[in-house]
Amino acid sequence: MIPFQYTRASDVADAIKQIAADPSAKFIAGGTNLLDLIKYDVATPTRLIDISRLPLGNVEETANGGVLIGALVPNTDLAYHPLIEARYPLLSRSILAGASQQLRNMASTGGNLVQRTRCFYFYDATTPCNKREPGSGCSAIDGINRINAILGTSQSCIATHPSDMCVALAVLEAIVHVTGPAGARTIALADFHRLPDNTPQIDTNLEPDEIITAIELPAKGFSTNYSYLKIRDRLSYAFALVSVAAALELDGDTIKEARVALGGVAHKPWRSPAAEVVLRGQRADASTFANAADILLRGARGFGHNDFKIGLARRAIVRTLSQAARGTPQSISDKKIR
């Protein structure tokens, strides 16, 4: 661990000013991921700018029927917020599937978006890793890669994004509100996280001097037909091998609208417009879901230990869509997959 200075931001403008003035500074809000990485010598900021007291803690309805979530709303508060529980239960379930209640009490909404991969080699500062040290090589491709990606990988990185919440946000087509020296802008969640290509050190399209201020949810919440299924190596408090967020709008047995995203399989929440096209207008049954799964997993490739994830993801997609269609979302506490 290297030493760092600590300052507090007085408001959003001050936060931007401070980070623009010090390229080796980082914002800290919940700290659950950043302090972990600092202690492992993976993150080496020389200054932490405390944004935890900025007034970004509200959840409010928007004029167009959606919800605006302040970037500093703790994960737990968001998951249990009456508006979210009632209108976006998929988001609630995905948040509660991640980490532990203690960590969720600390972790912020914005921080959840920018958490970094759990790849074993990224975390071990003595091994080569292009994400941690660009140009040093990827140890995971020929290494212990059970938890690594099967989609959107590159020769330089096969890391996954570890968030559960973001998988639901992808399905809900959330919009990320950010502010930087040039002013405020929005980024669609689909464009927020990047694929590794040959710059795996850059996780997101957030500029280094920008701050996330809010996440906006469009009105469509899929509160009737949804499910979040997380598959992991123990029944709680573990990162996903594969997770699936599914949301449907049904007209009888016919799918009017469909969204599916995968977690634990790529450098970002994985969606495929083509897969959703084959769902729309079709009967909500296993064969339709299997078609969508095939398209979602097109181009999937394993690296040895994680080969099984392709077949596992296929079955998980079908199962989660079935749960969504039945209106029986996966329970968080009862671990039986129905």
Partner: peptide, 25 residues
């Protein structure tokens, strides 16, 4: 305990990725 034999290192030398049962198990 997962070793990367190329490096002769334990890659899950922590209690998040070395899985022991949690209450839910």
């Amino acid at each position: 305990t997962l070793y990367d034999h190329r490096f002769g290192r334990v890659m899950n030398a922590n209690i998040a990725e070395y899985h022991v049962p949690v209450n839910a198990d």
